[in-house]
Computed example of a mutant assay.
Amino acid sequence: MTQASPSLTALRPVLHDVMQEAAALALPFFRKGEQTTARVWSKAGGSPVTEADVAVDTFLKVRLSQVEPRAAWLSEETSDDPVRLGHDLVWIVDPIDGTRAFLSGHPDWSIAVALLRGGEPVLGAVFAPASGHFYEAVVGQGATLNGTAIAVSSQDRLDGARITGPKPMQDRLLAGAARQGPRPSVTVIERVPSLALRLARVAEGRIDLGLVSKDSRDWDIAAADLILREAGGTVCGLDGGPALYNRSEPRHGELIAAPLSLRDSTLAALEK
């Protein structure tokens, strides 16, 4: 495992403060249980974006570029610049992960920021401003929620597991497990709109298994991936390989997020 350096340790509280400032830009537009007051429009492909997304993205690009000017940039709301492919350091940012939740007044949206070094996340934070939950990790130093160390659950079998994610993947998982033995009894947790937050909740042990459909992007998962790794879990593809970052197409196939103790049985059940 890559060891944390003093510079990463020093960056952690700086990133924390920057993300708090970013949240202060978004929160005035959020109304719990009601529609946002922000202006909304559709991007190419039809997904929504709000003025809050753009304001947070612009703020983070300026501030994080000051914090670590050597790093390139990849964000959901900024046109991709392939110059990032030649950089050792890259900021990966989702200014508002779970925009539809933000729009509708659902509290499970987040701001997610990761710093990559050599294609691996080495610093990550996921902040859910509506609930005040702030997840952080530095490579080699463990993961925290609001400053307290967190760890994945000790669940080591599908039977009795708390799972969340897209229903088609859940159905495949249970059918696959049933082919190998008794059909497991699981507790289905309501799908968490923010993918970064879904993975972070696996890291803190509130969810045993998170399923992720194909086409997630680097900005959806990089920060939470590190948090989950540092909490004793994994984000991996159905081949068991880790998520890979800062490729020319920052898109991923189906993934699972789980404690290491649950990884192999989950992959076996999802095996095609």
Score class of each variant (00 low, 15 high):
L211K: 04
L103A: 05
A44F: 08
G241D: 08
R247K: 13
A257K: 00
S248G: 00
S261F: 03
S194D: 03
A24K: 14
R172L: 08
S42I: 02
R179W: 01
V83C: 08
Y245D: 05
R84E: 07
S185L: 09
E190D: 15
L199W: 02
N146D: 15
S79P: 10
D108N: 11
F134C: 07
P129D: 08
H87K: 15
G205C: 12
L8S: 07
V14L: 15
R70C: 03
W219T: 13
P166K: 04
R12E: 15
L174C: 00
P107Y: 07
G210I: 01
D215W: 12
V202M: 08
P121H: 01
G124M: 02
G46D: 12
T266G: 05
Q20W: 12
R162T: 10
E51M: 13
G233S: 07
T234K: 09
E68Y: 11
E77Q: 11
H252E: 01
P48S: 13
N246V: 11
R162V: 10
Q66M: 12
Q170A: 10
P166D: 06
I256V: 14
A223F: 01
G237F: 00
D88C: 06
C236R: 07
V202H: 05
E120G: 00
E271I: 00
L255C: 09
L260Q: 13
L173I: 03
V40S: 05
T2N: 12
V212P: 02
Q180A: 14
A177H: 00
E68G: 00
D108Y: 10
I256G: 10
D220Y: 01
S47D: 14
S104N: 14
V62C: 07
E120C: 01
A52V: 05
L267F: 09
L8T: 02
G232A: 05
A151Y: 04
L211W: 03
D88Y: 11
L197T: 06
V90N: 09
L89T: 04
F29I: 02
L255N: 10
A130N: 05
A257I: 03
D57M: 01
K214F: 07
R263N: 04
D159Q: 08
V83P: 00
R39Q: 14
P48L: 13
R179L: 14
A24G: 15
F30L: 12
S194L: 04
A231K: 06
S42K: 15
P259S: 07
L270I: 01
A130E: 09
K43N: 10
A177F: 00
P242K: 09
A55T: 06
G105C: 12
A203E: 07
A72M: 09
I227L: 04
T9K: 11
D17V: 03
V93D: 11
L195Q: 09
G118M: 07
A22T: 07
P28E: 11
Q66D: 13
F134R: 02
K214Q: 13
A258W: 03
E51C: 12
G98R: 01
F102Q: 10
L209P: 03
L115P: 09
H16N: 06
A128R: 01
S75M: 08
F134K: 06
I207P: 06
Q3P: 08
P168S: 03
A130I: 04
A269N: 06
A38Q: 05
D225A: 12
V192N: 08
A203W: 02
G237Q: 09
Y245R: 03
G233W: 07
R229D: 13
I207D: 08
I256N: 06
I207T: 14
T37Y: 07
I96N: 04
A243G: 02
V18D: 14
